[in-house]
Amino acid sequence: MQYISFVIGQLVRNAKHGWTAQIMTLFTIMLSVLIFSFFLLIYTNMQKASSRLGNELRLIVYLEDAVPVNFRTEFQKKITDFEEVEDIIFVSQEDAFGRLKKQLGKDNDVLDGLDASFLPYSVEIYPNKNLKSLARIKAFSDYLGGLPGATKVQYGQEWIERFGYFISLLRIIVILSGALLILTSVFMVSYTIRLTLESRQEELEILRFLGATDSYIRGPVIIEGFLLGLLGTISGLAALLFLYQWVKIRFSGPGFMNLFEFSFLPGSTLLIIFTMSLLLCTSGSMISIRKYLKL
């Protein structure tokens, strides 16, 4: 009980003496948590969108000629030898013509007088859901392009490639902002606490002469780092929630946001960010106090 009252007393005294540095530290931790968790939020949502796109991935191989029915099994085997697939559909010129008509809807009269022969034969390949890597998709596409009779392979290359690069870029940003979070949490907390300790050096020396134990000296300092981390992380995550709500409201309705379901970070991820941030801030204060325990 006495220890708790001592710790509270010390915290209040430190807050009075070094409130500017503490507010700056709080603000920095908040910003770091916000930046990191914001990019993580975008990244996880993009990942989700990417898997959804992956689920809808379809490669179309255009052929010079129709694959005779008795060769279809062999053709299918050639495809599945390279990559497992969910479905392979052989599309005849007539089927393609029928689809085009359907797509044109009311305007399908433009096809009047034409027959299906101007459309190519094709094979639609629906790969397995685990085919998400851009490199693997490209390799599969190249392989399909080399099959006998294949003239062209289409799978929305440009869009998928750009999306893939965007996700890679986001991953790098998440890693960098994570590093920023680590650096700011550890160094800012450690710096602020060192400032407090420098101003209390005389007091720490006297406490040592009076026989204060390490835990007596260390306790308030570690709790200070912990509290800075706690408040900074809560503020950062609260700011993220606010930003998320704002984005949802601001960009709701038809548009980019409707391409995928924009959702907040799951509880487990928030808990990991929270725990990591607290650990980092507490470590920052432990690093600072080490020197002063050697008095």
Binding site: Q2, I206, G211, T213
Partner: peptide, 11 residues
Amino acid sequence: ALAMEVRYENP
């Protein structure tokens, strides 16, 4: 009081 506080004496 500091001398007694470091021994966690009762307030």
